[in-house]
């Protein structure tokens, strides 16, 4: 596993959560605050290992809940529910296609808030819900879908520019070395 990639993903999540808590422009213009963690989870699940997926779910969820009135830890499980199946089936997904990224981003951005709401409601929380919630959900899905290909491009550029490539295995094998000594007759 490339450590640089894990660190860059966690840093992106850190800044994304901070931006969501401090920038009011999306709420002002669209009527809803957008969440980039589901889209980032799709990138992580398709490009890294299970450890990074778990780390992003735990730390991203905790950071999100820190700024929110959510109970601490409630956002971890929805992120895991999205990230884990994608990790297991990633060989079957055309991850380099922007359309696939778009669809997966939309699905993740739909599932994560819906599951979080479900968990909160099952815990007896009194939430601000109404017909406007449907609009907010659609905005989150649309922004998450559009953001996913951009996150893929950005993270791939970061990895290529700032990261390091794993050293290729040398073709030399000692057990296949040809003996080139003079044969004694």
């Amino acid at each position: 596993m490339n450590l640089f990639q894990t660190i860059s993903i966690l840093l992106f999540a850190f800044f994304a959560v901070f931006g969501e808590a401090t920038l009011g422009a999306p709420r002002h213009w669209l009527g809803a605050q957008v969440d980039l963690l589901p889209a980032l989870m799709i990138y992580t699940a398709l490009n890294t290992g299970a450890t990074t997926v778990a780390l992003l779910a735990v730390l991203g969820g905790i950071w999100f809940d820190t700024f929110s009135a959510n109970p601490l830890g409630i956002s971890i499980l929805p992120l895991l529910v999205v990230g884990w199946p994608v990790t297991l089936r990633r060989d079957l997904i055309l991850r380099d296609l922007p359309f696939a990224q778009f669809v997966l981003g939309a699905a993740a951005s739909a599932v994560v808030p819906a599951l979080t709401l479900l968990l909160l409601l099952s815990g007896g929380a009194r939430l601000l819900l109404g017909w406007g919630t449907l609009w907010q959900w659609l905005v989150m899905i649309a922004v998450g879908a559009v953001a996913t290909p951009f996150i893929f491009s950005l993270m791939t550029w970061c990895r290529r520019t700032l990261g390091y490539e794993p050293r290729p295995e040398p073709s030399f094998r000692p057990d296949r070395e040809i003996q080139r000594s003079r044969r004694k007759l």
């Binding site: 009011g24 605050q33 959510n70 979080t116 601000l128 919630t133």
Partner: peptide, 9 residues
């Protein structure tokens, strides 16, 4: 200094 990032609070 900050707002709730969740839409339901």
């Amino acid at each position: 200094v900050m707002r709730d990032p969740a839409n339901w609070w």
